[in-house]
């Protein structure tokens, strides 16, 4: 299944592995931060609602 990358196999594989890892880190960071802020806002709004 893996294509024959010849003598540049290390460079090409490393480029793909590191770039995909960086993209996954970015997507994960944006998603986790979004979730954290959304939950924190919901808590504060609920507290503000109770106080009237």
């Amino acid at each position: 299944m893996m294509p024959d990358l010849g003598r540049y196999a290390v460079e090409v594989t490393l480029a793909y592995a590191v770039s995909l890892a960086l993209l996954a880190t970015l997507v994960g960071w944006v998603w986790l931060r979004g979730r954290r802020v959304r939950r924190a806002l919901a808590d504060i709004e609920a507290r503000a609602g109770r106080k009237g």
Partner: peptide, 30 residues
Amino acid sequence: LLFLALVLAGTRTEIRARRMKALINRERMQ
């Protein structure tokens, strides 16, 4: 498209963070 999706998601988070900050400030003033 990934850039667009991440900017949309990030902007939504920033809008919520801004609202959160405003609510916290209001609580403090009260």
